[in-house]
Amino acid sequence: MEMIEHALRANSLVTAFAFVGIIMWISVYLSRWLTFGRIHGSAIAIAIGLALAYWGGIKTGGSKGLADINLFAGIGLMGGAMMRDFAIVATAFEVHVDEAKKAGLIGVISLFLGTIIPFIIGASVAWIMGYRDAVSMTTIGAGAVTYIVGPVTGAAIGASSDLMALSIGTGLIKAIIVMVFTPLAAGFMGLDNPRSAMVFGGLAGTVSGVSAGLAATDRRLVPYGALIATFHTGLGCLMGPSVLFLATKALVG
């Protein structure tokens, strides 16, 4: 047993490939026999991944879910930002340029809406719940944009670490909701063509939420959504500490 553990730990990335492969196999099986294909195999796999992340977090008290468990350190590399972005860029090979160009303008509009709407809602909820100063409202509102925009904005305008944690929490919950509920709400959102995927990429925010949500809905839509969503964090970090903070300050003093 120790020998096996050693082999797994010494080859962590390979272990991750095997492990994720098994998760995928189980998910596809569950999808076919339990839901008769109604829920996509990848949606189930992502849900299993999130559940394992919760288990890993409880078990180790760390911040990287399953990847904090020694045996599964390779998951951290396989699902880290480097590999994720590499795979996303690779999907661009399948983009039909005309489709992407047609939806360019509406994609950019969605991007702005996807920054402003969550911010206003986050800041308003913060106000209702008693966080009535401009710094708190802006930090929580920025967290509702993405979990990176939240702390970057908070740091720029001098928010406390408690507020930053709250802001990151808001963004993480948003990303997880998008991952889990996108396939279920795909029909409602009209998510079945490149244009709609680009609108989704702009409005739903966070590369992780969008990429997982689209993967679980229709893998072919991924590059269109990702193309727009990748600008989300940059735009949020640009607008959060500047325009949005000043606007909030002007409103609440």
Partner: peptide, 13 residues
């Protein structure tokens, strides 16, 4: 891409 996203989901906080 999809397996990578599953691994990404497994390391969310």
């Amino acid at each position: 891409y999809i397996p990578v996203v599953v691994a990404m989901a497994a390391q969310q906080n």
